[in-house]
Write a protein that binds this DNA or RNA. Structure first.
Ligand SMILES: Nc1ccn([C@H]2C[C@H](O)[C@@H](COP(=O)(O)OP(=O)(O)OP(=O)(O)O)O2)c(=O)n1
Ligand SMILES: [Mg+2]
Length: 988
DNA sequence: TTGGTCTAA
DNA sequence: CTGTTTAGACCAA
C-alpha cells in the first residue's frame, strides 16, 4: 500500500500555493488595429513596429539577468513553485561558473539576433505588411480548406519515466524525492522532487541544493529499454505503424483501429487486472531487483504472456492493491496537488473522466457501473452527469475492466494495460493531429489523459490562449524571438502572421502559421533511415594533444563498433569539440568514399582535431567534450543486400574499405591520388604536427613492422592490409578485441559507458603500441605513447606502400610510385591500408610536407601519375574511385565492362554505369528508387509532415541538383514573390 | 558542404 | 566546483 507520493508532504517544499506557473508575467497588449479582416475567423492586426517594440520584453530586460539559467517550469508537476526562490538558489550555485558565463554569452547572441530582427521589422512599411497579409491569408485559406479532423492521433508519454522505473524497483524510493542521474546531470526526477524545482536536465549538484534530501539514482538504461519494449508491444496492437519518439513516448493513430473496435465483443475489450502469473512474476521481479539481469528477464517474461485476454489464473488480492497504488492514488494526488482552481476551469478536463460524452452509441455491451467508472477517472470528485452512458466498465469484483469503444476508452485501456504490464503509469493526449496530441499528453500529466474533440471550434478553443512555448519545436530562443514581436500565445501568433511571414524563413513562418491554426501532422510516420551516427563524451579537461588524440581514438572505436551493428558506412566525418568554456565547435570533412572502420574514421577525425589544435596554438586546446559523427551514409540498400556483395558492392568494395575477409574478386589497384599533388602545397612541417621528438625512430619502427607489404600476394590481401597499416591497424584491432569484454556489458547503454571504459581503451592501445614499437626507447611518458601512436600512424601512411624507398631513405615516402601503378601487384594495395593512406594523405597536408620534397624530387613520376589520374585507362580506375581527387574535376574513366570511356565527376557515376552494364535489375531498381523518391517528396510537401516537423524535409536532399531546392517552395505553397522580393531588398 | 544553432527526450 | 547524450532540422555562407 502506498500513499500517493504527493500526498503526505512532510518535505519542506518550495512552493507557493496559488501562483500560476507563468514564466513571464509581463503582459503584452495585443494590439488590434481596425480595418483589416482576415479571410477567416480571427481578428487580425499588424501592429506597428512601435507597438511591438514597446512590448518587447527583451528591451526591458535587466541586463545582468541570465534568464536561461532559470528554472523551466514548463514541465508537468512543477506548478505553483516559488520560482523566485528556486532561481535564486540556482543562480547562486551557477554564478561564476564557466557554464554560466557561456549561457550569458549565448543569451547575448540571441539578443543580438532579436535586435537584428527588430531592425528588419522597423524597416517594413505598411504596404509591405499589408501585402504580406494578403499573401498569408491566401495560405490560411488553403490551409483551412485542407484541415483534416478525421484522424484520431494519440501521443502517449510515460510518467517521469526513468524515475518511475527506479521507484517501481525500489519501493524505498517512493516516498522520497529522487532523481535519476548523477551529481553532474539529472535525467529526470520524480514528482516529489519536482516540488523542489528539481527536474530533468538539471545538474545533480544543483538538485541537491534545491533539495538536500534528494536521492540520486544512477540510470539503468537496459531496464528502460526493456520497459519501452513492453509498452511498444502493446501499442503495436493498436497501430502497427506507431511511431516511437523516444524510449518513453510514441505517437499512434487509432483511426483504423477504432473501426475494428466497433465490431469487437465486450470480452475482447475486457482486461484482467493482474493474472496470477503476472503477479507472481512481479514478485519475482521485485525480489530480483538487486540482480539487474534477472530483473530484465522477468520483465520480458511477463511481456510474452501478458495481454489480459482471457488470462486464466486466480486473482490475488495484492494485484488489486497494485492497481490501487498507481491508479487511484494518482487520482487523489492530482486533486490535491494541481492547483484546483485553474484546472477545473478547463472545460475539457471533464473529458478525462467522461468518455461517455462521445461514446453514447456503442456502449451497449459493457456492464455499467458508473461508480466504478468514476473511480477510473482522474477526478472522481467531479462526478459526471450522465453516468449511464459509460463506454467502459470496471466490474464490481474489481478483477476485470471492460473498456468501451471510444477512443478515450481505448486509450484508457492502453494505459491500463501498460500499467498492468509494467507497473508504470502513462499519460496520453488525443487530438486530430500530432502537434495537439503532444500537448494534450502533458495536460493531465501524471497518469491522465486528455482529448481535444475533433471540431475546429474545439481545436481553436484549445489553441487560443496556449503559450507557444508548449508547442513542440518552439524552445527558449524561438520563444524569445516571438516574444519580441509581442507573441506569447497562439492567438498572438496568428495575429502577427504577416510579420512572421516577413521576418522568418518560409519554413519557419509556415510552421508558425500551422501552429496558430491548430494544424499539425495528421498521420504518424516513422522516421526514415537514420542519417547520422555519433558518439561523444564529456570528460575532465584534456588539453594535451596526445591525450586528445587518444580520446579521439576511443570515440572512433566506439563509433565504429556502433556502425558495425547497423552495417553502416558514411562519407562525412564530423568532430565535435566543446571547450572547457562550453563553446561548441564542429569540424567536418567529407570523403569521396564511405568509411566505417575506426582507423579510417580516426584518420580523418585526428586531422580535424590537429587542425584545431594548431588553430589555437600557442594556446592549448582545452576540451571538456569530444564527439565523432559519421554521416552521408551510403545508400543503405547497397550495404544491406549482402555481404558477398552485389555487383554494385563488388565495385564499391574497393572504396568501401571493407574489412571483412571478403576479397574483392576484381583486381583493384589503388591509384595514387591526385590529392597528393594538391596537398603538396602544404607548408607545414611534419614535426610540428604531433610534436613528437621521436619521429625518425618512428619511421624506422614502422619499417620494421611492415617489411614488405607491397609484395604480399593477393590472397593475403586483408591481412596484409592490416599489417600494412602498421601500428595503426594492429593496435587497433587488438584493442577492439580486448575492449569487447569491457564494452559488451555496458554496450547497450551508451550513456552508461563512461570513463571507466575509456581508461581501459587507452590502456590497451598504449599497451599495444608499446609492444609493437617498444624496441625504440623513448616511450616513457603516456604522452609520448600517444605521440608515438599518432606519429606512427602518420609515418605508416607515408611509408607503407613503398617500403623500398622507406628503406633507402629516412624520408617518408609517398605511398605510390610508378611501379606500384604499373605492376599488377599493385592490386593488393587496394585494401584497407592503402585506402587509408590515401585519406590520410589527402586530409593531412601537414603530414605531407616531407612528401612534398619527395614530390619535387620525383616530379616526373608525379606528372605521370597525374596524367594517369586525369585520364585513367584500363581497369585501374576501379580504384580511381579511391582516388581522392576533388569532386569538381571530372575524370575520364573507362568502364571495365563495356570499355566505354566517359567523364565522371563522381564515383557514383561510374558505379551506376557499371551497374547498368552488369545488372539490369540493379539499375532498374535504382531508377525506381529515384522515381519514387521524387514522387514521395512532392507528395510529402502537401500531405505529410512528421510528428516533429511540419514541413517536408525530404525534398531538399533528394536530388543532386541544387537547383531543385529552390523549387520547393512553389510546389505546394503559393509563390512567395512578395517574400522573395523583400528578401532581396533586405539583402541590399 | 560546412559550421553553427536550436530543439527534444 | 559542478551542466549529458544523441539525432535531426534549419540556416547562412
Ligand atoms: N533532458 C532530458 C530529458 C529526458 N530524459 C529522459 C529521462 C526521462 O525519464 C525520459 C522521458 O522524458 P520526458 O520528457 O517524458 O520526462 P519524464 O517522462 O521523466 O517526465 P514526465 O512525467 O514529465 O513525462 O527521457 C533525459 O535523459 N534527458
Ligand atoms: Mg515522459
Amino acid at each position: 500500500m502506498n500513499t500517493p507520493p504527493s500526498r503526505g508532504l512532510d518535505w519542506k517544499e518550495i512552493h507557493v500555493d496559488e501562483e500560476e506557473e507563468d514564466d513571464e508575467n509581463w503582459a503584452m497588449p495585443a494590439s488590434t488595429l481596425p480595418g483589416q479582416a482576415g479571410h477567416f475567423t480571427s481578428p487580425l492586426s499588424v501592429p506597428s513596429s512601435h507597438q511591438i517594440i514597446s512590448g518587447n520584453k527583451d528591451l526591458q530586460l535587466d541586463n545582468s539577468r541570465v534568464s536561461s539559467m532559470d528554472l523551466n517550469t514548463n514541465k508537468a508537476g512543477m506548478e505553483g513553485l516559488d520560482k523566485e526562490k528556486i532561481n535564486k538558489i540556482i543562480m547562486e550555485a551557477s554564478k561564476g561558473s564557466r557554464f554560466y558565463d557561456n549561457q550569458k554569452k549565448r543569451e547575448k547572441q540571441t539578443t543580438e539576433r532579436i535586435n537584428k530582427m527588430m531592425e528588419k521589422l522597423a524597416q517594413l512599411t505598411e504596404s509591405e505588411k499589408q501585402a504580406a497579409l494578403t499573401q498569408v491569408d491566401e495560405m490560411v485559406r488553403d490551409l483551412e480548406l485542407s484541415r483534416d479532423l478525421s484522424r484520431i492521433i494519440v501521443h502517449l508519454d510515460m510518467d517521469m519515466f526513468y524515475a518511475a522505473v527506479e521507484m517501481r524497483d525500489d519501493p524505498e524510493l517512493q516516498e522520497k524525492p529522487m532523481a535519476v542521474g548523477g551529481m553532474g546531470m539529472l535525467s529526470t526526477s520524480n514528482y516529489k522532487a519536482r516540488r523542489f524545482g528539481v527536474r530533468a536536465a538539471m545538474p545533480g549538484f544543483i538538485g541537491k541544493k534545491l533539495c538536500p534530501e534528494l536521492v540520486l539514482v544512477p540510470p539503468h538504461f537496459d531496464k528502460y529499454r526493456a520497459v519501452s519494449k513492453q509498452v511498444r508491444e502493446i501499442l503495436a496492437e493498436y497501430d502497427p505503424n506507431f511511431c516511437p519518439m523516444s524510449l518513453d513516448e510514441a505517437y499512434f493513430d487509432l483511426t483504423e483501429y477504432l473501426e475494428r473496435r466497433r465490431r469487437m465483443s465486450a470480452e475482447e475489450r475486457t482486461y484482467l487486472y493482474c493474472s496470477a502469473e503476472d503477479h507472481g512474476q512481479v514478485e519475482d521481479e521485485k525480489k530480483s531487483t538487486s540482480d539487474k539481469a534477472a530483473n530484465n528477464v522477468s520483465i520480458q517474461e511477463r511481456t510474452s504472456d501478458e495481454d489480459g485476454y482471457g488470462s486464466s489464473g486466480d486473482y490475488q488480492h495484492q494485484s488489486s492493491s497494485g492497481v490501487d497504488r498507481s491508479l487511484f492514488t494518482s487520482v487523489s494526488k492530482k486533486q490535491g496537488e494541481v492547483t484546483s482552481g485553474k484546472v477545473l476551469s478547463v472545460p475539457a478536463e471533464i473529458q478525462v473522466k467522461s468518455p461517455r460524452r462521445h461514446g453514447n452509441t456503442n456502449n451497449a455491451s459493457s456492464l455499467e457501473d458508473s461508480r466504478s467508472e468514476a473511480e477510473w477517472d482522474e477526478q472522481p470528485e467531479q462526478d459526471v452527469e450522465d453516468e449511464d452512458n459509460t463506454c467502459g466498465t470496471k466490474r464490481q469484483d474489481g478483477r476485470f475492466e471492460t473498456f468501451g469503444v471510444t477512443c478515450e476508452e481505448v486509450v484508457r485501456e492502453i494505459r491500463f494495460r501498460i500499467e498492468q504490464k509494467t507497473k508504470l503509469t502513462a499519460s496520453a493526449g488525443i487530438a486530430p493531429n500530432c502537434m495537439l496530441a503532444k500537448i494534450c499528453s502533458d495536460k493531465n500529466k501524471p497518469n491522465g489523459q486528455y482529448r481535444i474533440q475533433p471540431s475546429r471550434e474545439d481545436v481553436m478553443d484549445f489553441i487560443r490562449d496556449l503559450s507557444i512555448r508548449k508547442i513542440s519545436g518552439i524552445g527558449k530562443v524561438t520563444e524569445r524571438m516571438l516574444s519580441a514581436l509581442g507573441i506569447q500565445t497562439c492567438t498572438d501568433l496568428y495575429q502577427q502572421r504577416a510579420l512572421s511571414y516577413l521576418l522568418f524563413s518560409q519554413t519557419s513562418s509556415s510552421h508558425f502559421l500551422h501552429i496558430s491554426l491548430g494544424l499539425g501532422s495528421t498521420h504518424v510516420e516513422r522516421d526514415g533511415e537514420r542519417k547520422s551516427m555519433s558518439t561523444e563524451r564529456t570528460f575532465k579537461e584534456i588539453s594535451i594533444p596526445s591525450e586528445l588524440y587518444s580520446k579521439c581514438m576511443e570515440l572512433c572505436e566506439a563509433l565504429a563498433e556502433d556502425l558495425k551493428k547497423e552495417q553502416i558506412q558514411g562519407k562525412t566525418v564530423t568532430v565535435k569539440l566543446k571547450t572547457v568554456n562550453f563553446e561548441v565547435k564542429s569540424r567536418a570533412s567529407s570523403l569521396k568514399v564511405p568509411v566505417r572502420s575506426s582507423q579510417e574514421i580516426f584518420a580523418i577525425a585526428r586531422d580535424l582535431i590537429r587542425t584545431e589544435i594548431r588553430a589555437c596554438h600557442p594556446q592549448p586546446l582545452r576540451l571538456r567534450l569530444m564527439g565523432v559523427r559519421l554521416s552521408s551514409f551510403q545508400d543503405a540498400s547497397k550495404l544491406s543486400r549482402s555481404r558477398q556483395g552485389t555487383i554494385l558492392d563488388m565495385f564499391a568494395k574497393k572504396q568501401s574499405n571493407n574489412p571483412q575477409p571478403v576479397t574483392t574478386p576484381t583486381p583493384d589497384c589503388t591509384e595514387p591520388t591526385m590529392g597528393l599533388l594538391e596537398e603538396s602545397t602544404s607548408n607545414n612541417s611534419f614535426s610540428g604536427s604531433v610534436g613528437t621528438p621521436g619521429e625518425v625512430s618512428d619511421v624506422s619502427r614502422i619499417q620494421v613492422l611492415v617489411p614488405n607489404t607491397k609484395v604480399s600476394a593477393p590472397d593475403t590481401e586483408i591481412l596484409t592490409s592490416d599489417t600494412e597499416d602498421g601500428v595503426g591497424v594492429s593496435f587497433d584491432n587488438k584493442e577492439r578485441v580486448e575492449k569487447k569484454d569491457v564494452v559488451s556489458g555496458s554496450k547497450k547503454a551508451p550513456e552508461a559507458r563512461d570513463s571507466t571504459q575509456s581508461a581501459v581503451g587507452v590502456g590497451v592501445s598504449v599497451n599495444r603500441v608499446d609492444r609493437s614499437v617498444s624496441s625504440d626507447t623513448e616511450l616513457s611518458s603516456e604522452q609520448t605513447f600517444e605521440s608515438a601512436i599518432t606519429a606512427a600512424n602518420v609515418r605508416t601512411s607515408m611509408t607503407i606502400s613503398n617500403p623500398h624507398h622507406s628503406q633507402s631513405h629516412l624520408e617518408p615516402r609517398l605511398p605510390f610510385c610508378e611501379d606500384d601503378f604499373v605492376s599488377g601487384r599493385e592490386n593488393e594495395h587496394s585494401s584497407i591500408a592503402d585506402r587509408e593512406e590515401h585519406t590520410k594523405q589527402l586530409y593531412h597536408p601537414e603530414l605531407l610536407s616531407k612528401s612534398e620534397i619527395f614530390n619535387q624530387e620525383n616530379n616526373q613520376r608525379v606528372d605521370k601519375l597525374l596524367k594517369m589520374n586525369s585520364h585513367a585507362k584500363s581497369d585501374e580506375y576501379g580504384s580511381e574511385c579511391t582516388s581522392s581527387v576533388e569532386a569538381e574535376a571530372q575524370r575520364m574513366l573507362t568502364c571495365p565492362i563495356c570499355r566505354q570511356e566517359r567523364a565522371y565527376s563522381t564515383l557514383e557515376g561510374l558505379n551506376q554505369h557499371i551497374d547498368a552494364c552488369l545488372n539490369k535489375s540493379a539499375i532498374k531498381e535504382m531508377l525506381h528508387r529515384d522515381k519514387s523518391r521524387s514522387f514521395s517528396s512532392s507528395n510529402n510537401q502537401l500531405t505529410k509532415s512528421g510528428p516533429k516537423k511540419l514541413h517536408s524535409r525530404k525534398r531538399s536532399n533528394s536530388g543532386s541538383g541544387s537547383s531543385s531546392s529552390k523549387k520547393k517552395r512553389s510546389k505546394s505553397t503559393p509563390c512567395r514573390t512578395l517574400y522573395d522580393f523583400f528578401q532581396k531588398k533586405d539583402n541590399h
